[in-house]
Design a protein around this nucleic acid. Structure first.
Length: 175
DNA sequence: GCAATGATTTACT
DNA sequence: GTAAATCATTGCC
C-alpha cells in the first residue's frame, strides 16, 4: 500500500467494490472518493485524536471503516495507511453494477450508497482482502476529475485542496 | 451525567 | 440558496 492517501483516493476511482451479504453479492464501480488524513482538520482522527470510534482508522491499511454519521447515515471508508497513521478514503458515490436496484439516485451520496449496497456497522473493521467486502481492478480507465470540496466558494487554505476525485460526467456522482 | 457536535439528507424559502 | 432534523459519539463538568 502506498502511504499517499490522495494518490490512493485517485486510484480507487474506477475500481469495483464487492459486498457479500450472505447469498447476495452486490457490486458497483467507485465513482467518487475523497481523501481524509490526520493532517486534515475535517478528519475524525485529526492530530492523532484516538477515540473508540476512530480506532479503526488507526489500524493497518486495507480495512473497512464504517461510521454512523448523524445517527442515521452509514459512511464507508477504506483505511489506507500504516498502523497508528490514520488516513482513509471516503467512498462518496458508487455506480450500481450487480445486485443493486438500478434506481436513479440511490447511490449518489455517501449515506445513501451504503444503504443501497447493504453496508452496515457490522462491516466495520472488515478486512478488504476477506470474502465479505473486497475491491477488484477490472482494468477500467475512467476519466478522473479532481475537484474542491463542496460549498467553499471563498478561497481558503483548505478549500484549495483537490482531495475529491470523481468520474467525469458520471450521473451517480453526488451534487 | 449532560450539553455540544457532525465526513449528511431532506425539505422549504 | 438556507435551515432543520436526528442520534451516536465526544468532551467537559
Amino acid at each position: 500500500m502506498n502511504d499517499d492517501v490522495v494518490a490512493i483516493a485517485k486510484d480507487l476511482v474506477g475500481k469495483v467494490l464487492f459486498v457479500n451479504n450472505g447469498d447476495l453479492i452486490k457490486s458497483g464501480v467507485i465513482a467518487e472518493t475523497e481523501a481524509y488524513s490526520y493532517k486534515e482538520r475535517a478528519c475524525h482522527a485529526y492530530n492523532f485524536r484516538h477515540t473508540n470510534r476512530t480506532s479503526t482508522l488507526f489500524e493497518e491499511g486495507g480495512k473497512a471503516y464504517v461510521y454512523l454519521c448523524y445517527g442515521i447515515h452509514h459512511l464507508f471508508n477504506i483505511v489506507t495507511n500504516k498502523k497508528d497513521y490514520p488516513e482513509a478514503v471516503l467512498i462518496r458515490a458508487l455506480e450500481p453494477q450487480n445486485g443493486i436496484e438500478n434506481k436513479s439516485g440511490i447511490t449518489s451520496g455517501p449515506g445513501k450508497l451504503t444503504r443501497s449496497i447493504g453496508i452496515v456497522m457490522q462491516h466495520n473493521q472488515t478486512d478488504l482482502t476477506g470474502d465479505q467486502i473486497w475491491i477488484e481492478d477490472q482494468g477500467l480507465i475512467p476519466h478522473i476529475v479532481e475537484s474542491k470540496r463542496i460549498g467553499v466558494d471563498y478561497a481558503g487554505e483548505d478549500a484549495d485542496l483537490l482531495w475529491r476525485f470523481s468520474i467525469k460526467n458520471n450521473r451517480w456522482v453526488s451534487k
